[in-house]
């Protein structure tokens, strides 16, 4: 059974239909890259999956939790999927450790002691156990993004949504973040990532989704999608023509 089931999802911003009937099933442990030009709807799709955007038609299920418009359903769904953003979005007034501890404490109501142990473990997982007391403005972009990953992991999600998580980073910082994500993939985390890192997508992903004008234009294993694209649009996107 699929962990994430996206069925006939349509999304409009005013008169502009950005998602035109998307179907996508993600199996547990699967790593999927979503690629495509800007404006193709890939970020919107990701944001719909945890309810940051509402959908106009269709349905989205994550591990049995149905996406619905009320806060109760949304929060149930968001307990199952974590999200990492292009702009990190760490809480500036809290240390790295506190950033990771906050949600387990206020949402899951676990004790400060347990939350701290969990935060230290998650920070260690992203290689930042020594930065527990550092504030976001004392960290590099790559370190901030790794804290954001630790923060999402501390909620023990079944899947992680990554929205262009290396796009705001200086080139030399991209790899430290990708390494963390690669390790998560190896450990069996379900990942759905919008990315421009084609080499990474090729090496790590089980399937690649190419989106074009609000539709899933091509989908398949990376060697097929990258080696022998079927459509003109994908060949153009990959710079093969």
């Amino acid at each position: 059974m699929s962990l994430i089931a996206v069925t006939e999802v349509r999304k409009r911003f005013g008169a502009n239909e950005v998602l035109k009937g998307i179907n996508l099933d993600v199996a547990p442990g699967e790593v999927i890259a979503i690629i495509g030009k800007s404006g193709s709807g890939k970020s919107t799709l990701l944001r719909c999956i945890n309810g940051l955007e509402t959908i106009d038609e269709g349905s989205i299920m994550v591990a049995g939790a149905q996406l619905a418009d009320d806060e109760l359903h949304l929060r149930a769904l968001r307990l199952k999927v974590g999200m990492i953003f292009q702009g990190f979005n760490l809480f500036p007034h809290l240390s790295a450790g506190r950033n990771v501890m906050l949600s387990p404490m206020v949402v899951k109501k676990i004790s400060a002691k347990e939350a701290e142990a969990e935060a230290r473990a998650r920070l260690a997982q992203v290689g930042l156990e020594h930065k527990f007391d550092a504030y976001p403005d004392e960290l590099s972009g790559g370190q901030q993004q790794r804290v954001a990953i630790a923060r999402a992991l501390a909620m023990r999600p079944l899947a992680l949504l990554c929205d262009e998580i290396t796009s705001a980073l200086d080139p030399e910082l991209v790899n430290e973040v990708l390494q963390v994500v690669g390790k998560l993939a190896e450990e069996g985390m379900t990942l759905l990532m919008v990315t421009h890192e084609m080499r990474f997508a090729r090496e790590v992903c089980d399937r690649v989704v190419f989106m074009h004008q609000g539709r899933v234009h091509e989908i398949g294993p990376p060697d097929i999608v990258f080696e022998s694209p079927k459509t003109l649009e994908l060949r153009q996107f990959l710079g093969m023509t």
Partner: peptide, 22 residues
């Protein structure tokens, strides 16, 4: 910034929790 609300929401925090802690 909107990102602060989105990060809080994605961590399953309620609106009131987001206001108070974030």
């Amino acid at each position: 910034p909107r990102g602060q609300y989105e990060a809080s929401a994605s961590l399953a925090m309620s609106r009131l929790q987001t206001f108070r802690y974030v």
